Simulated scan of single mutants.
Amino acid sequence: MVFLAGVDEVGRGPLVGDVVTAAVILDPHKPIDGLNDSKKLSEKKRNALFQQILDCSLSWAIGRASPQEIDHLNILQATMLAMTRAVDGLSIRPDFVKVDGNRCPNWGYASEAIVKGDGSVAEISAASILAKVTRDQEMQALHLQYPQYGFDQHKGYPTKAHMQKLAEFGPTKEYRMSFKPVQQALLQHSGVVHAV
């Protein structure tokens, strides 16, 4: 049996939080209906599929890179690191890895990058859903910690509402300090970083 893993990331664009990746090896004997690019699914559907993927896949793993790693490496290299961590975390070593996007990490796995793979390859769709639901849950937790920022709504992306809150309150330690809007907010707030 050939073990095929799908890999996808969520959270390259946000100003705050980890970039989150997932790797999934599906069980061919337990097909999952309705897999698609996580962005094209409702939150309710994503959450239902999330549990199904956990229950029915042969192996799955979450990888991540922290805001500090993103600031140190840059977002592209941090994403590659997070993808590597996800695949390394699988309990089964895959024979082949399909990665959403146009490049693969520099790793020891036979792999292929597939643009829009999250909508066309079931394993990548499953990884997309795991990564998206995981990151959204983390944004909900951050919202409870800092309700004034509205993380439950914008999930850390630079929406107009988020930019207003960032300008008003300044960045917390969970922000990516190398991102230009965060640097601008830091300057406005005289370099004061709000701790917990």
Score class of each variant (00 low, 15 high):
130 L>A: 00
117 G>P: 03
110 A>M: 11
105 P>V: 10
78 A>V: 08
177 M>W: 04
126 A>H: 00
131 A>F: 06
166 L>E: 05
128 S>Q: 01
190 S>T: 12
102 N>E: 05
138 E>R: 15
85 R>W: 05
115 V>S: 04
31 P>D: 03
131 A>P: 04
171 P>M: 04
125 S>I: 02
75 I>M: 05
190 S>Y: 13
139 M>R: 07
66 S>V: 08
4 L>W: 04
91 S>Q: 15
76 L>R: 10
5 A>P: 05
69 E>R: 11
126 A>G: 02
75 I>W: 06
34 G>K: 04
93 R>N: 14
189 H>I: 06
19 V>A: 10
55 D>E: 14
135 R>K: 10
65 A>S: 13
172 T>V: 08
76 L>F: 08
158 P>A: 09
36 N>R: 02
56 C>Y: 13
53 I>E: 01
167 A>G: 13
58 L>V: 01
11 G>D: 01
122 A>K: 09
174 E>L: 13
166 L>M: 09
36 N>G: 02
18 D>Q: 10
183 Q>I: 08
94 P>G: 10
75 I>E: 02
17 G>Y: 12
16 V>H: 11
128 S>W: 01
30 K>Q: 12
111 S>A: 15
187 L>M: 13
25 I>Q: 00
82 A>T: 07
150 G>Y: 11
66 S>T: 14
36 N>C: 08
59 S>W: 08
104 C>I: 12
81 L>C: 09
32 I>F: 05
11 G>S: 07
56 C>D: 13
137 Q>R: 15
20 V>D: 04
10 V>M: 03
53 I>V: 09
172 T>G: 06
95 D>R: 02
142 L>E: 02
175 Y>N: 04
